[in-house]
């Protein structure tokens, strides 16, 4: 395990590169889902407002 984490002396390069990629992948999933949730919420609010007027 120690050896694996050490990456043959390249740990300081391999792990940040993989870590950054992992973080951005997860962030993209969160951003996309949040964007959809927000749009749905806005659409619901618009419908509710229009319902109140009529």
């Amino acid at each position: 395990m120690r050896e694996f984490l050490d990456m043959g002396g390249y740990a300081a390069f391999v792990w940040p590169a993989w870590g950054l990629t992992f973080v951005v992948v997860i962030l993209n999933v969160i951003w996309a889902r949040r964007s959809l949730a927000r749009s749905r919420e806005e659409a619901r609010r618009r419908l509710a407002m229009r319902g109140g007027e009529s």
Binding site: N28, V29, A32, R33, S35, L36, R38, S39, R40, E42, A43, R44, R46, L47, A48
Partner: peptide
Amino acid sequence: ALLLTRLRAEVLRRERTASWIREAVGS
């Protein structure tokens, strides 16, 4: 998968008046 999710958000945002939205957001 990301494109499809974001596209739904964009389409909802752009279709302000369309009646199908009521059905889509389930209210």
